[in-house]
């Protein structure tokens, strides 16, 4: 089985792929982009919840750091959720400029967020949680989004 770091990093790449397809679709027609945008938002929400409800929770419990890196990452998730709502709103309003404005901001926020997680937090999580790695991945795998 893969490590926590590999598992979550691969999921980032999966979300990136959907994001690229979403922008591709939106550049042709906003109407056609609705379903793939929803797919991207769902995939991201699933990823956020795997972290917030499983991995971060385990990490916080193990290290006692509740105000540290995970708090910062949770805050960035909130920022991204608000941008995703703007994406949907601009699709509904048929406003292409607004859509790509939000998608660009989201893209950069997302990438630097992923970078911080992949290079620092996941590596640290792997060190602290390696003994429970299989159990944590299984929990993330079976998570149902609330």
């Amino acid at each position: 089985m893969s490590t926590i770091k590999e598992y979550l990093t691969n999921d980032h790449r999966r979300c990136d792929e959907i994001f690229a397809s979403m922008e591709d679709a939106a550049s042709n027609s906003l109407e056609d982009a609705k379903s793939i945008t929803q797919e991207f938002i769902d995939a991201s929400e699933h990823h956020f919840q795997m972290e917030e409800r499983v991995m971060f929770a385990e990490f916080e419990q193990k290290t006692g750091m509740t105000e540290g890196p995970t708090a910062m990452m949770r805050q960035e998730h909130t920022q991204m959720r608000s941008l995703m709502k703007q994406l949907m709103d601009s699709l509904e309003a048929g406003d292409k400029d607004r859509f790509f404005g939000s998608s660009e901001t989201l893209m950069i926020l997302l990438q630097q967020h992923n970078m911080k997680e992949e290079q620092m937090l996941y590596t640290m999580a792997q060190q602290h949680l390696s003994a429970d790695s299989d159990r944590i991945i299984a929990m993330m795998d079976s998570l149902i989004v609330e």
């Binding site: 920022q79 607004r98 404005g101 939000s102 660009e104 901001t105």
Partner: peptide
């Protein structure tokens, strides 16, 4: 790229939600 992003990021982190996007 970097200046609009920094402005957006710092404002958003301070709780300002209704702000222009980077490209605006």
């Amino acid at each position: 790229k970097i200046i609009p992003f920094l402005v957006w990021f710092h404002l958003n982190a301070k709780g300002y939600m209704n702000i222009p996007t980077m490209s605006e």
